[in-house]
Design a protein around this nucleic acid. Structure first.
Lengths: 212, 212
DNA sequence: ATGTAATATTTTGTATGCCGAATTCATAGT
DNA sequence: ACTATGAATTCGGCATACAAAATATTACAT
């Protein structure tokens, strides 16, 4: 087996993102590099490198002399992010091979149907949703676009833990996923792309009330 | 006057990008951190921070143990970037205040007409083109989107110096800009957005032959 | 008591140093 | 002559050390 050898900065970045998912960090509060580095068991150098990448992705803010802090959440920014991801994922569908889309349609349908069954834990649901979108975009031939989508979605993880509870929206989410998959199966990619954009906009509106 | 106080990493990033515009760096060749740092008169630390940022924007690549290199150019990647920027700028138009768009239309028209006059120097032309697009997007209310566009365009700077020479494409570029401005003046934002997307796709095709 | 100035402390930003991995060059064996 | 193996060297990754800025604290004056 090939043993894992990746830069510390990447591992740190992922650790910070997953802590973010758990809602560990209070938005807007400053990050103390020394204490966080000690907590993670690394030195400040790779930590700062991770912080800088996260700042580039919009997860963090920084100001001269005051270091980094988790960017505060806002309805406005969440709307902006959703609009962006909607456009990007829609473009990704356009860049995909229609034949491939048809071939994955059954799996997408199946995944969408499994959705409401295991509403056990929050983390599971998010994973499930990500998995669905990843599969949807798996046929996209625009590599740069996929990277970009991943990066923008990282900026949305600050909002992830706000979804907790409330099952009703999930069923609608699943219904919309089914709808998209059906369009793909029927070989109507344009309609699927439109439904995908709608899905993001609807999901945004469902979230809005939960954001301060 | 408020004296400029910005992190070194940002100044370094911009210096590297402007060197890129001048075609100073051969794509694909490895970067030697120590010598580049010495050349810039800074230490490796802020240089690496700038390199990491640029890698996040797709300007550089990095592999474990081999450090950073300027990502090689390819027709494929250039097409991918153009498709992305076309979609993003189009979205930015959608997010703009129609009234504001109408109000800047005359200026956009004027700028587009000035275009072919001063074909003196390459740098001037690029600045001019950037200025036009910046003005076009100046009414966009999606801040995150504007940042993202800036970031993606940074990744396109590797292709900038390939445009040198050849005036014919520039006139077509100017004509397309005029067309977009006219749609805005006529209060037809949807058609303007379509023309903008066409502009990027056409510009891409004009460039294609120049990329190895 | 409150505001301000001077100082101390904390924390970021930058520089330097060390270690290990990766590449290169040399040498030996086929 | 060519490949393979090992030594030497270069270079990136990470840690540590230092410098500068910002914040907190205290003393003093009004």
């Amino acid at each position: 087996m090939p043993i894992e050898r990746r830069p510390l900065r990447e591992q740190i970045r992922e650790e910070l993102l997953s802590r973010l998912d758990r809602g560990d960090f209070a938005a807007g509060t400053d990050i103390n590099e020394a204490s966080l580095a000690a907590d993670l068991g690394v030195s400040r150098t790779p930590l700062r490198e991770a912080l800088i990448t996260l700042a580039g992705e919009g997860v963090l803010e920084s100001t001269q002399g005051r270091g980094f802090r988790f960017a505060p959440v806002s309805r406005r920014e969440f709307r902006e992010l959703c609009e962006i991801v909607a456009a990007l994922e829609s473009l990704a569908l356009d860049c995909s091979d229609p034949a491939h889309l048809r071939s994955i349609a059954p799996d997408l349908l199946k995944l969408a149907q499994d959705f409401p069954d295991n509403v056990a834990e929050q983390q599971i649901i998010e994973r499930h949703d990500d998995e669905w979108h990843d599969l949807l975009l798996s046929g996209c031939r625009n590599e740069r676009l996929l990277d970009l989508i991943t990066s923008v979605k990282a900026g949305m993880r600050r909002y992830a833990h706000l979804i907790a509870g409330d099952d009703a929206p999930l069923e609608r989410e699943a219904a919309e996923h089914r709808r998209i998959a059906e369009f793909l199966q029927a070989d109507e990619p344009a309609k699927a792309a439109q439904a995908l954009r709608d899905n993001w906009i609807n999901g945004m509106e469902r979230m809005m009330s939960r954001i301060p």
